[in-house]
Design a binder for these strands. Structure first.
Lengths: 192, 192
DNA sequence: CACCTATGTAAGTAATCGTTTACTTACATA
DNA sequence: TATGTAAGTAAACGATTACTTACATAGGTG
C-alpha cells in the first residue's frame, strides 16, 4: 500500500539523517536506511538517485535550514540571511578549512543545536576543570594556558566528516565555487 | 624483503590513523590502509587481529598518549596523570555523553592538537563575527546570545564518530566500565 | 469501468568488504 | 648446514555493498 510521496520521502530524509549522525556516512548502508523507514531498498531509489545524492540533499537542505533559522530569529528589514549572504564567500571558505561544518549544518537544520548546547557545558566544564586545577597547583605552566583552549577547541575540528564531504563533492565534481553557486541558487540569490 | 616488526607496525598505525581521520572509520577499507603502508592486505593481519582491533589500539594508545602528554608538562610530585586518574570516572563518563572524544584522543596523541588550535581562531572568529555583527544591529535578540556559543560549541559534538565508538565497543562487548577497567590497566593503576 | 502513473516489492546484479588460506622469502641461531 | 620463525605475497572466501530490473498494486482521472 503506497503512501503519499512526500510522506515516505520525508521519512527517508529523517532516517538517513538520524543514521548518518548516529553511525556516520560510511558505516550507514542503504539497507539500514530502508529498514529504519520500513520499506525495501529499492523504494529508496524511487525518491533519491543514490546514497550520495541523498546525503547531498541533506547537505543543501542543512544550508537552507540554517539561513531560515537565522531569518526566523530576526525582525529587522535586512535579515541575517541577507547578512549571511554577504558573508557567503567567507562562510563557504570555511568548508575548505573545516569540512566538519557539514555536521553542524545537519544539526542546525533539525533544531538539535539547542539540545547540543544544553548538554555541552557539563562535559566541557569537566575537562576544563581537570586542567584548571592542575594549573592552580603549578603542574601546568601558565604559558600552556592554551592547553585549556586546546582541550575545548581541539574537539571542534572533527575530521571524521571529511569522508562525507569528500564522498559528496568528489564524485559529483563539486568544488567550493560549485557549492557557492548551488547555495546561491537555493537561496534565490543572484550569482556573484 | 621484510622490514623490522616495529617499523611496519608503526607505519600501519600511522596510515590507519591518517585515513581514519581523513576519511572516517566506515569509509576506510583495509585495502586503503594496506595501499598506504605499501604492503598487501594480508600483511596487516600479521600485526593486528582486524580492523576493529586496529582502531581499538589507536583508541587506547590515544588515552595513554593524552596522559603522557599531560605528564610531560608538569614537574610536581603528584602529576597530572594521577590527577587525571582521580577524575577518571568523570572523564570516562564523558564517553557516554560524548563519544566524539575518541577523535580528540587521536588528535591529542599525535600532537596535532597545537596545530589544530593554531588553525582554529580564524574560522571560529569568522563564524562568531557573522552572528556578532547581526547582534549589534539587533537582528538577533540578546537573549539568543547562546546562538553564538551554539555556532562554536555546536561543532563540538561531532556525532560522526559514533560509528567508530559503536563499532569498537559493541562487537567487543565493551561498555563504559570495561573501558574504565582497560584504561586503569593501561595506566598501571589499581582497579577501583 | 478502463487506464495510467506513482509507489512499492522481490530478486537479482557486479563490485567491494573484512578476513583467511596456502605458500614464499629473509634471517637468526644451534 | 639444518631448522625455526617472523614477515610478506597472491588468491580466494562468504558476506555485504550500492544499485538495478521485472513485476505487482493502489488511487485518482478520463
Amino acid at each position: 500500500m503506497p503512501r503519499s510521496r512526500s510522506d515516505t520521502r520525508q521519512r527517508i530524509r529523517d532516517c538517513a539523517l538520524k543514521l548518518f549522525v548516529e553511525k556516520g556516512f560510511g558505516s550507514t548502508s542503504m539497507r539500514d536506511i530502508a529498514h529504519c523507514v520500513g520499506v525495501t531498498e529499492g523504494a529508496l531509489y524511487r525518491h533519491f538517485l543514490g546514497k550520495d545524492e541523498l546525503a547531498w540533499h541533506l547537505f543543501s537542505e542543512g544550508f537552507v535550514g540554517l539561513a531560515e533559522r537565522l531569518e526566523r530569529r530576526q525582525a529587522a528589514a535586512h535579515g541575517v540571511a541577507a547578512k549571511l549572504d554577504g558573508m557567503l564567500d567567507e562562510f563557504l571558505a570555511l568548508f575548505d578549512a573545516d569540512p566538519a561544518l557539514f555536521s553542524f549544518l545537519l544539526l542546525a537544520q533539525h533544531g538539535q543545536l539547542d539540545k547540543v548546547t544544553a548538554d555541552m557545558p557539563n562535559p566541557v566544564e569537566i575537562v576544563r576543570r581537570v586542567v584548571a586545577e592542575a594549573m592552580e597547583r603549578g603542574e601546568i605552566a601558565a604559558g600552556n594556558a592554551n592547553l585549556v583552549a586546546a582541550l575545548v577547541l581541539g574537539l571542534v575540528l572533527q575530521p571524521a566528516t571529511f569522508a562525507v564531504y569528500g564522498r559528496l563533492t568528489r564524485p559529483l565534481g563539486l568544488r567550493a565555487p560549485d557549492i557557492r553557486r548551488a547555495c546561491r541558487r537555493i537561496l534565490d540569490l543572484p550569482p556573484s
